[in-house]
Amino acid sequence: MDAFEKVFEAKLEAEEKIEPKDWMPEKYRKTLIRQISQHAHSEIVGMLPEGNWITRAPSLRRKVALLAKVQDEAGHGLYLYSAAETLGVERATLLDQLHEGKAKYSSIFNYPTVSWADIGAIGWLVDGAAIMNQVMLTRASYGPYARAMVRICKEESFHQRQGYEIMMTLSNGSEEQKAMAQDALDRWWWPSLMMFGPSDKESTHSAQSMAWKIKRKSNDDLRQQFVDVSVPQAEYLGLKIPDDKLKWNEERGHYDFGEIDWDEFWNVIKGNGPCNEERLAARVKAHEEGEWVRDAALAYAEKHSNKQKVEA
């Protein structure tokens, strides 16, 4: 271990943040770039399934709330790309990796939003699962990432309450609305559990990330925590979680639950989910159609680098 590495390890040990100009092992840098950019991609791809309901939201209040929420996701994407840039990689490069299918994003966004209740279920479950992960990341060892997560978590927890409130309204509504809410829970429950990633014994990156204090809890621990908080929330809504094996285990002090369909899990990751192609195609289309706009903005800035003021 050389002197630089000793300083790095000592900082980790002392729970001090690693900052952009600090020395860090190349693998630590690469792991962070991979994780932060995946996270950023997830935010912007995640805009699509929810954005799908903006024009059809059932009331003005809901429309405005949904727009604001999807806009927040874009904002999260921005902070995260900026955090990744502190590690010496450009946003454009990361976007190219996404568009070429080389970078991953959260598989949950490859599922379709087919009813209004899906907007509630996503807020409640998907944002809820994301928060479990992200609260842990506010303590990540890399400073810019941890700080971005603090702000993101505040907004996500607002989104989660908003989603749960949609579910509550539906559950207290007409029979049709209750059925809509149950149907959404049926479809989003398992994909939400999959958000925590492969089980600990299958997870390739987990051990190293925990040693580097990027990650603080294992996938299975987080998943258990999510199940434990979600069950009473579903009960309060009067909805049934679609898992026959779900049962309180007095001895463990946790809920036992059924096995995830890992075949589906790996298939969606490999690109065979219901909306993988559409999601990527939508991002690529927006990017390609925006190219002339970005080029023109650069050309204009170069032409007018002396900053003329416009009077109009």
């Binding site: 024009t55 405005v64 939508a282 706009v293």
Partner: peptide
């Protein structure tokens, strides 16, 4: 609102959504 998530750059996406809001 139709454009949210489909803008030519993230910053423009955010700004157009703001105007919509």
């Amino acid at each position: 609102g139709e454009l949210c998530g489909h803008g030519p750059a993230l910053e423009i996406d955010i700004a157009l959504t703001n105007i919509s809001l």
